[in-house]
Each structure stands twice: as C-alpha cells, then as structure tokens.
C-alpha cells in the first residue's frame, strides 16, 4: 500500500488530514484506527472500528496489496460485531468475546513487533558505515531483484557473443492431429474397418502413436467412429458410424487446430 493521505474516515469533529507511511497489513490498519480514536486496545469498540475499517477498505480497494488478508480481517470484525449483539448468555456471544480478546493479544504483539522494527531500522542506519572483512555479500533487501530485465538481456547478449554462438534449434518430425484425423476419415469413408496396430505400423514412433490415440479418441468423441476391443491388450478395431460418415460434415470436421489436444 502506498502513502495514504486522509483515509476518508471522519474522525469525530476534527476531520483532519492524517498521513501514514504504510499499512503493512490488516493489523496495521486496525491498530492505526484504534489509536486514532483514542480507543483502549483492551476494550475495542468493535462496531465503531468495524464500520471505519470497512469504510477504509471500500475507499482504498485499489491501493491494497493483499486484499485477501484485509477481507479476512473484515469478516472477522463483522462476525464478532454481529455475535456480540446476541444476548449475553448465548454461546455465540461468549465466543465473540474470546475472539475479541484474541484480537487484542494479536494487536499487542503486532505493536511490539512494530516497535522492534523501528529499533532495528535505526540501528541499521547507525551501522551503515562499519564494515568487516567477512562482510555479507550485499544483495539489495529493498527491491525484489537487483537486476532489471534489460540488464539481464545485456548479460545474455554478452554471453552469446563470447563464443556460445553454437545455439541450434532442436527440430523433430511434426505430426498434427488434424492431419491424422483427416487421414483416418478418408480411409474410413470407404467403409473399411481399421486395425489400430496396422495404423501404428505406418509410422512406429512414440509421437505418431500418441497423436493417433488422440485422433481416434477425438473421432469417437464426435461419434464418427466406434472402437472395439475383445480383451485387454488385443487389437483395437475402428469402425465408422455409418449415418455420420455418410453425412457431408465429415470433411469439415477437423477444426480448431491445437485445441484438439485439450478438448479431445
């Protein structure tokens, strides 16, 4: 989340502008709201805080870095708020009180971590100019990566120039499912019954057999052929579905190119 100026929450009579550096997460926002309202952290006024919290995330939905976490907190607040409205004797009311206490604990813990963060940051600044021989190799902690895409491209370019210019394109036989389907349809049209093993023998490579399987499944799916196998591991017979094959639409069937792999 970026810098936020006046989060759009009316703060009592004084509607002043507040500048906050960063809300690291839902706890940060919640803590800020509590402090801003001079509320006792041990006795959070849930309904007031909930409405301000919701008002904030509604007005800043596009600035929020991790919406899921902010929304999870919102739903927790709403749950506590609604359960607290039930009569005191109810189990829900008691559970909500427990959840409210747990939230206070979390906020207190978070407050300490924030205090410690400030101490570490200032100690870090003080130490910036002291080195030792075994200085940790510096990797920027602020950015995700010290290298930009362009620098990376530059480095890659230099490596190639340095003599690794023997890059070769790896090519292999290209077999398209559309071609195989077309071939199968042409042969089937004559009413001939095809044997899977025969077809596979034409081009006994893994790729062809794999595409062949896909092609046959595709044709079955489109109800253009039926497949039959007497027992496991025996040959598979592919037969045309006559009513469909005699129709005109067969030749138009192969369509959609690569999508066949996904839909077949």
């Amino acid at each position: 989340m970026k810098k936020v100026v006046n989060p759009g929450i009316p703060v009592g009579a004084k509607d002043y502008f507040v500048k906050i550096d960063v809300f690291e997460g839902p706890l940060d926002l919640l803590l800020w709201l509590i402090q801003n309202n001079n509320m006792d952290i041990y006795d959070i006024e849930i309904s007031k805080i909930t409405s301000q919290y919701l008002a904030f995330i509604n007005t800043h939905e596009f600035d929020i870095d991790s919406p899921a976490e902010f929304l999870a907190m919102a739903s927790l607040l709403i749950r506590i708020k609604s359960s607290l409205m039930l009569p005191k004797e109810t189990e829900e009311h008691q559970l909500a009180l427990d959840e409210k206490r747990a939230l206070t604990e979390k906020l207190l813990e978070w407050k300490k971590i924030k205090a410690s963060r400030e101490i570490l940051l200032s100690k870090f600044r003080e130490r910036k100019n002291l080195f030792r021989r075994d200085e940790p190799a510096a990797i920027e902690l602020e950015k995700k990566s010290a290298l930009s895409v362009f620098e990376l491209a530059d480095i890659f370019g230099r490596i190639i120039k340095k003599g690794f210019h023997k890059f070769e394109e790896i090519t292999g036989p290209e077999i398209y499912i559309e071609d195989v389907i077309k071939e199968l349809l042409e042969r089937i049209r004559s009413g001939e019954e095809l044997k899977f093993s025969q077809l596979a023998f034409q081009n006994p490579t893994k790729l062809y057999v794999a595409v062949l399987v896909l092609a046959v499944l595709e044709l079955t799916n489109k109800k253009l052929v039926t497949i039959k196998q007497a027992r496991p591991f025996t040959d598979i017979y592919i037969k045309p579905v006559l009513s469909a094959v005699s129709g005109k639409n067969i030749t138009e069937q192969p369509s959609g190119g690569e999508s066949f792999y996904g839909n077949g």
Binding site: D21, V22, E24, I113, K114, S116, R117, L120, L121, F124, K128, F131, E135, P136, A137, A138, I139, E140, L141, E142, A146
Partner: peptide
C-alpha cells in the same frame, strides 16, 4: 562498491524482529 548496497526495507525489518 558492492559493500554499500545492503538496504533494509520496513517489511524485512519486521520479519527480522519477529
């Protein structure tokens, strides 16, 4: 020059604190 590069973001400082 690389010895001066180390920076610390607030979130990294937070994680360290925890």
């Amino acid at each position: 020059p690389w010895k001066g590069v180390l920076r610390l973001s607030p979130s990294a400082a937070e994680v360290l604190s925890i």
